[in-house]
């Protein structure tokens, strides 16, 4: 993408005003790594949003709040009880990219292979959007990722933070990303959140992305898990229903059928990891 100008607002309010005025001629820039690959004939003005105090991770009651301009490396490095976000961030791209690429940049414009939308859908995250007022609008992941989120920001609004529920005891999270090489884009990426109760699955949120046009929840898989024992058999049977929610697309060198198998195996693994986490895995 061609840049005609580069501006550095110093407050969120100013950034929103600038983006609002520029309209389609403006482009918020955080890490900026994706901008180099975006096609567009008209040069845009890059609006640097990395100097607005949006880089932080803190616990706020029942949520971890991650500033939208927090680099993936910071999320990857953080450890703590009931925190699971580091696992997927370690798997995204390379160290140098993770040092600049941000959580907001990864989710405000969703590319089909993106991992974080899938994770945030499963985690039931809330996006906090700065819309100019005193209060930030809270958008649940299901709404935020119902369609391309970029449209939501056309009027200059800016993603301020992402809130991730602190996992309770008996909650477990697991994500699996299948890729050709460590740093390559996902072939299939899946994530699962399980709530266990009395030895059974009380509720489940399962999502998938890559090899389908847009990340989404797998409701048939979720339904097949509820009330069951968290066993390998349950997970395999539930994963086999994913094709009812997602039509897997073949990719270079892989038939659609192969991708389906890859997705099912990945789902089974993610569910097993989530169950292990719920029982007290702590890494």
């Amino acid at each position: 993408m061609k840049l005609r100008e580069f501006v550095r607002p110093s407050t969120l309010k100013e950034a929103r005003a600038v983006l609002r005025e520029l309209g389609p001629k403006g482009m918020p820039l955080a890490g900026g790594t994706a901008l180099h690959f975006m096609r567009g004939r008209t040069p845009v003005t890059a609006v640097d949003i990395t100097r607005l105090g949006l880089s932080y991770i803190r616990r706020e009651g029942d949520f971890f709040e991650i500033g939208a301009a927090t680099p993936l490396a910071d999320i990857q490095r953080r450890r703590g009880p009931r925190w699971a976000m580091h696992e997927i961030c370690r798997r995204i791209s390379t160290h140098q990219i993770r040092n600049v690429s941000t959580i907001g940049g990864n989710i405000c414009r969703v590319f089909p292979w993106a991992d974080l939308p899938v994770v945030l859908l499963a985690m039931n995250a809330r996006m906090l959007v700065y819309t100019g007022g005193k209060k930030r609008a809270e958008v649940p992941a299901d709404d935020f990722f119902a369609s391309q989120p970029a449209g939501r920001f056309a009027g200059g609004d800016i993603l301020a933070a992402v809130r991730i529920p602190v996992l309770k005891a008996h909650h477990g999270f697991g994500s699996v990303k299948a890729s050709r090489t460590a740093a390559a884009f996902s072939l299939v990426t899946v994530a699962a959140l399980l709530e266990l109760e009395g030895g059974r699955i009380a509720s489940a949120r399962v999502a998938a992305g890559s090899a389908i046009p847009f990340p989404k929840r797998l409701r048939s898989v979720e339904a097949a898990l509820a009330g069951r024992e968290p066993s390998a058999e349950t997970f395999r049977a539930a994963a086999a229903l994913a094709a009812g929610d997602a039509r897997w697309i073949g990719q270079e060198g892989m038939s659609a059928d192969y991708v389906r198998e890859l997705a099912e195996v990945s789902l089974t693994d993610a569910l097993a990891r989530a169950a292990e986490f719920a029982r007290g895995r702590n890494d």
Binding site: L3, L29, G32, A46, P71, A73, Q96, I97, V100
Partner: peptide, 22 residues
Amino acid sequence: QGTCGACTVIMDGRAVYGCLLY
């Protein structure tokens, strides 16, 4: 395109790709 690392420099203590940074 941010893959090979030959352009790596350090910005504020972090390794970054010079080719993917304006």
